[in-house]
Write a protein that binds this DNA or RNA. Structure first.
Lengths: 161, 161
DNA sequence: TGTGAAATAGAGCCTGA
DNA sequence: TCAGGCTCTATTTCACA
């Protein structure tokens, strides 16, 4: 019910918070949007309580912090139990992400980070112990993310009067 | 060269910043680590300049903000050009992540977000125009992330005096 | 590591659509 | 009635020693 009422100011806020969630002040965003800092702060609170903003996280280079291995583990779970398993998998030491995929097979994609192969195999073993099948493992060489472009007002400057 | 000198204080900082990069003050982290807030702030600056912390980003629920489609696009690129293409792909409107995979085939994994199918097919077309082959597309039902457990001092309380 | 100046966030109030 | 903007106070940050 808190869905589609995302206007251009909200998008600009979301984009700014994706660019730099820690150092971007409400005043900075206010300057971009032509509003006041208190308005931006209240908008952010609303976006948070509506669940549009789920949280703020530092992006860490795991390689530089001593954990050079990043792997994708493709798992198969029975359909009814798939969703219930996700929180448990997220608690596992070394798992940084879990995605439910809409495919017949290999419907859980687990991203694991570790220092050595044994860290990863340990996670794979835990997944097996939960009753999951680990169908494939792929090593990730690089991983880059970027703010969502459709929140960027600059790039979508077509329909403003 | 800025690699392995990550001590327990650094790990606690990294964990705290992954938990809540925006609202976690240096003082909060100082209380956890038994140091002072100015020490924490200087540590953070060092982690940032060393590239261990790559940035801070808001985690957005794209579904609730009007973009319910999240897809994984598995692409094949010739090995020599693969790395050079990544920045260009990240610039594409709707792409939120690109990963280089260490496999013979399907060695680029692009995560795209959109409102409708045509948003995604548009991205797929752009990838084709770059000379990439889109080998497979998978819809993502849910996507959850979590802080890296090995940075959590609580969970690894074995070798403290 | 600790201190003082500047900036930022949060709560309450007021205005206008 | 409610969202935007203003003001005041408590925190937080930054630069300095």
């Amino acid at each position: 019910m808190a869905g589609e009422d995302i206007d251009d100011v909200d998008k600009a806020i979301l984009y700014a918070l994706q660019e730099d969630a820690r150092n971007m002040s409400s005043g900075d965003i206010a300057k971009r949007t032509g509003t006041s800092d208190s308005t931006v702060r209240k908008r952010i609170q609303r976006l948070e309580s509506d669940g549009v903003v789920k949280g703020y996280s530092a992006s860490v280079d795991y390689g530089k912090s001593g954990y050079p291995l990043r792997m994708l583990l493709y798992c198969t779970a029975s359909i009814p139990k798939r969703g219930e398993l996700v929180p448990e998998i997220l608690e596992m030491d070394g798992v940084v992400a879990v995605q439910e995929l809409v495919t017949g097979e290999q419907n859980l994609l687990v991203t694991a980070v570790g220092e050595t192969d044994s860290d990863i195999t340990s996670i794979a073993q835990e997944l097996l112990d939960m009753g999951l099948t680990v169908a494939d493992e792929v090593l990730v060489r690089t991983h880059e993310t970027t703010p969502f472009g459709k929140f960027d007002a600059e790039r979508h400057a077509e329909n403003d009067s």
